[in-house]
Design a protein around this nucleic acid. Structure first.
Lengths: 145, 145
DNA sequence: TATTGTTATACTCTATAACTATA
DNA sequence: TATAGTTATAGAGTATAACAATA
């Protein structure tokens, strides 16, 4: 393990991952901006297009304070992409849900996000499988540490 | 290529990359916060620890407007991590450079960033080489598109 | 005239703390 | 009393526009 810290090959891979992260992030922001959405708004809209979610759960998924979610949902709601619904089981809870228009926008956003999909076309199925397995082992490693 | 758009294997890899991006970003912010730096400040400090850079070039690397760099450098300079120097060749230009303390902090930040380095220890040298080559082909693909 | 860095302004995201309405 | 959501506030990043100094 000590050798892995400064191993040139490892540093090279770390650097490549940094590049992947930067490019992914840039493209995400750029696609969101095309729809006049911020990155945070696009992320929340994506979440809600999968399933309606209580405010507090959105904060957990975004790893931010619940108070911030209020403003993000406010702005999405003002544009008709999201609506607040009461939770029949607990009157304190408000559930945010994408409207039809919101789901449509989320779908278009997903389709516009070419990064990592177009480039992957360059790889064969065999290579994509290998990449998947390596990434899975990388991501799973921390649990066992 | 049309098949690659909805191919389950490709979507799986795209999803894994999304997870990598999220985890990388979270750890970066967390490590920066440990040093009472924001993500943007840590990124700029990292840049300047490599080489002194004119304000305008910093904006290009950060992909933001030059006016924003003023504030980021102001805050780093107020903490003694960075200093502004005149450019002898062009008196309009100001060159931002990390101080000794700034370079030390940048070094500690780099060392603290375990993500993608610790997990990679789980992979053999052969596997790391494979991962490197696949990522390189992914990233290089867009140039040819 | 064009360019560099800055200032001024406005918007969004962020955390903290206090508030409300429920539970 | 504890929890869900909100409001109020302040700090930071962002873009736009206008400005001074310099090229």
């Amino acid at each position: 393990m000590a050798t892995t810290r400064t191993d040139p090959l490892t540093l090279e891979v770390v650097d490549l991952i940094g590049t992947v992260v930067a490019r992914y992030h840039d493209e995400y922001e750029e696609v969101a901006a095309r729809y006049h959405l911020t990155g945070a708004q696009a992320r929340v809209l994506g979440l809600l297009s999968m399933e309606p979610t209580a405010m507090r759960r959105i904060a957990l998924k975004l790893k931010c304070e619940p108070s911030n979610v209020t403003g993000i949902i406010d702005r999405l709601e003002a544009r008709g992409l999201v609506e607040r619904r009461p939770d029949p089981a607990d009157r304190r809870v408000k559930i945010a849900a994408a409207t039809d228009e919101g789901r449509q926008t989320a779908r278009e956003l997903r389709d516009a996000l070419h990064f990592a999909r177009e480039p992957l076309a360059e790889l064969s199925a065999e290579e994509r499988r290998t990449l998947r397995d390596l990434l899975q082992r990388m991501l799973g490693a921390e649990a066992g540490a």
